[in-house]
Nucleic acid binder design. Structure first.
Lengths: 103, 103
DNA sequence: TAACTATACTACTTTTTAGTAAGTTATTGC
DNA sequence: GCAATAACTTACTAAAAAGTAGTATAGTTA
């Protein structure tokens, strides 16, 4: 989203308003997940978009990334407390879509 | 947002997940507004983006457009009931932004 | 008649976001 | 040595969203 506008609504949208971000956050609501598992829960996401999305969510402090120094690599993602505070919003967005798509 | 994914969350985002849509809807929460007034409430939006945004919101059934056949033209926008059902989401997005920007 | 009004439209360009495909790393087990 | 593994990276392309600037309409008023 270009040229951010000085408005709380747009601040929020600039953090979660892309195609994949809400989806990633949503799947982490029930708890942390290993990278590969999380990615498999999101059908259609490409490798690149997955990495790019979690990188940005991490940069914005919405998720935490933990690397386990094992081989092959193991990486886990989970919501930060800031990310958890989005729970109501995410569930509302999902519920609204459920109520309003094809009915 | 390209290639919609079969997921309620993304359905919702495809309707309101752009730079200006949430803002337009938000300003209509308190009631219908004349086109020019609504546009002035959204600093930074260009004429084109305003028209494009309300056109899409109307197409998706989130707002209603009423034309009064007078000169110069008078056009009023207000939320449809479907649009009104987004109220909680919009207010949550705004509140979250308020709580999490610059603090 | 010429400027003014509120609303909208069009052509064009730039910026951002998303997608494709292939390559990288480092270690284990065969 | 070489494939398998999990996570990630890079270069490139395509598509969508946003921005800029100019045009159209048609009565009203100066």
């Amino acid at each position: 989203m270009k040229k951010e506008i000085n408005c709380p609504l747009n601040f929020t949208m600039s953090l979660i308003g892309t195609k994949w971000k809400p989806l990633v956050l949503f799947h982490l609501l029930e708890g942390g997940l290993r990278s590969g598992i999380l990615q498999k829960k999101i059908p259609g996401i490409s490798n690149k978009m997955f990495t790019q999305t979690v990188r940005e969510l991490e940069k914005d402090g919405l998720i935490k990334r933990t690397i386990f120094p094992v081989v092959p690599p193991k990486v886990e993602y989970k919501l930060s407390s800031k990310g958890e505070s989005l729970e109501a919003i995410l569930r509302n967005l999902d519920q609204w879509g459920l109520d309003n798509s094809k009915n």
